[in-house]
Design a protein around this nucleic acid. Structure first.
Lengths: 129, 129
DNA sequence: TTCGTTGCAAACATTTTGCAGTTTC
DNA sequence: GAAACTGCAAAATGTTTGCAACGAA
């Protein structure tokens, strides 16, 4: 990974960072994670590239948790669990949304459906004590 | 509705406003809607009361759409469709999330589940042209 | 007089943007 | 040189908060 084209060095590092973690990071988390290795990285660049990746479909957005947008480098459709206490986001890979539901939604909404998102909210094991 | 206790006049108006519309309004929408009738209403009061209602479970939050938080006065669990173009939010009342899914999620997440949210995203009829 | 509610404006946090400098082709 | 990418700081946005004033009990 080290000898990439310098032109895209930061861009690639940002994408890799989102893809290699399971924390469903925020822009700020990515910045803090990369800053020690890339000392001249700026937060604006992180925001700009995340927006670009999202537009290109390389990553997805989970929406905002406690006011900050969270991203997911895993673009396979899957279900999420969000802890309302600590804001942790976990994948629930064992669960799948039945395709019949999406079909029914398409029939019912009057428009076209591009994606779906199923999120369970509650308290994670740690926050339950 | 007009002769309510003056102490809660604004509070009640805000709650009624969220409950009586299907647009899944933002704080700003509620403010703009009520301001003509309640000329000394302030946006801070709208935010404060919406936060209060949410905490009390009188309304729910859909999360943010295009950067602004949207609320729902209908607290019965139901599925939403959000237009990624115009930001319109519709209820899909014909569709229900199977309870087995929630059970499976509870078993899989390791914590406790308090709520679930299923959102379909796409283009509404108007934005499809 | 005590408490809850409010308007107002300032503060705040997150995200976006303008611009100049740099690198790549 | 043109185009793409970036750092930096300023700006924009949505939301929260402190405080004094007011109204109800």
């Amino acid at each position: 990974m080290e000898q990439k084209n310098k032109r895209f060095k930061k861009r690639d590092a940002i994408l890799d960072c989102v893809r290699e973690t399971k924390v469903h990071p925020s822009a700020d988390w990515v910045y803090a994670r990369l800053k020690p290795d890339i000392s001249d990285l700026s937060l604006g660049t992180v925001y700009r590239n995340l927006a670009l990746f999202k537009e290109q479909g390389l990553i997805t957005s989970l929406g905002t948790v406690k006011g900050v947008e969270r991203f997911d480098g895993n673009t396979d459709p899957h279900v999420h669990f969000i802890c309302c206490d600590c804001g942790a986001v976990d994948d629930l890979m064992e669960i799948q949304l039945p395709t019949e539901l999406t079909c029914a939604a398409a029939a019912s909404c009057g428009g076209s459906i591009q994606s779906s998102q199923l999120i369970f909210t509650g308290k994670c094991r740690k926050c339950q004590n």
